[in-house]
Design a binder for these strands. Structure first.
Ligand SMILES: [Zn+2]
Ligand SMILES: [Zn+2]
Ligand SMILES: [Zn+2]
Ligand SMILES: [Zn+2]
Lengths: 132, 132
DNA sequence: ATTGCACACGTTATAGCATAACGCAATTGA
DNA sequence: TCAATTGCGTTATGCTATAACGTGTGCAAT
C-alpha cells in the first residue's frame, strides 16, 4: 500500500512523532499540538488511525504510546512482523525485524489453524546507556 | 519462585480467571466479585499484581486483559518468553513457548547490549473455529 | 508486654487512555 | 445536481489504572 498525501492534521501528528526523542502517548501529542489548534483527543486519534493504516507510525501496545516508523520510505508492513525494544528508563525505541522469528511464529499458528491478523513483539528493558 | 498461599482476595480473583472462558479485564473481574464484597478497582488490581508476580496469571498487553496461566503447577516464568494467540472473535487464548523464538530475540538484544526485563508476544487473529 | 514493622485490605479521589454520537464542510464522481 | 465519502470539530462518555490515606492483623526484636 502506498502512502497517500497526508492531511493537515495527519501531518501535524506525524511531525510531532518524528521529531520526538521517544514514544508519545496520544494525550502528549495533543498537548504538543494545542498551539496548532488541537483541542480534543479525537483529533489525535483520528490522525493516528490513518497513520497506523499507512504504516508510517507504530503503536506500542505495552505502553499505550506511538512512534514514527524507523524505516521512512520503505513500507514497513511488507517486512513481516515488526519487533520493538523499548528502554523503560530513557524511552529509546529500537525497531527491528527477524524473519526467523516470523517464520517460527507463523509455523506455530499454521499448526493451530489460527489466522493471524496483527502480531505484537515488544521487549521492555534497559538500553545499553541506561543499563551501564 | 514458589507460589505462596493466596490471600482471600487473591484466591477470589484467581478463581474468576480460571473459570472464565477467555481473558477478562480488571473491571469485568470487579463486576463478577461484587457479590463477594468487592467494591473498588484497587481490590482487583492489587490481587492481580501479586498473581502476576507469582506467575499464575498473565497480562495480555494488547487487550488490557488478564488470563490464568495455562500451565497450572509448573512455573511459567522458567519457560522463557510466553507467547499468546488471541482470537478476536471468541476470546480464546492459546499460550505457548518457542525456544527458538526466545533464542533469536535474545541474540538480537545481546547484539544491541540491551537488557531485557519483560517481553510481550501476542498474536491477534481468528481461531480455527471462528475463521471457518 | 510493648514496640515497630510488614502486609493485606478498604475507601475516596483522581489520573490517563479511548471512543460514541452529533453535526458541518469540502471533495468527488455519477 | 445529487449522493456518497472523507475529514474535521465539539461534547460527552466510558474504560483502564493509580495516588493517597487510613485500618487492622500478625510477628519479631527489644
Ligand atoms: Zn516500521
Ligand atoms: Zn535508555
Ligand atoms: Zn503461563
Ligand atoms: Zn475464536
Amino acid at each position: 500500500m502506498t502512502t497517500p498525501q497526508l492531511t493537515k492534521n495527519q501531518s501535524l501528528v506525524f511531525d510531532v512523532l518524528e521529531k520526538a526523542e521517544g514514544p508519545l502517548s496520544a494525550y502528549t501529542i495533543l498537548d504538543k499540538l494545542r498551539d496548532h489548534g488541537f483541542r480534543a483527543p479525537l483529533q489525535v486519534y483520528r490522525a493516528l488511525e490513518k497513520l497506523l493504516e499507512y504504516g508510517v507510525v507504530h503503536r506500542l501496545e505495552s505502553i499505550n504510546s506511538f512512534v514514527a516508523c524507523a524505516h521512512p520510505g520503505e513500507n514497513c508492513h511488507s517486512h513481516g512482523i515488526v519487533a520493538f525494544a523499548i528502554c523503560e528508563s530513557c524511552g529509546l525505541v529500537m525497531e527491528f525485524h527477524d524473519h526467523e522469528v516470523d517464520h517460527r511464529l507463523m509455523a506455530w499458528v499454521r499448526g493451530q489453524k489460527f489466522k493471524p491478523e496483527k502480531t505484537t513483539i515488544e521487549i521492555r528493558g534497559l538500553c545499553e546507556t541506561c543499563a551501564a
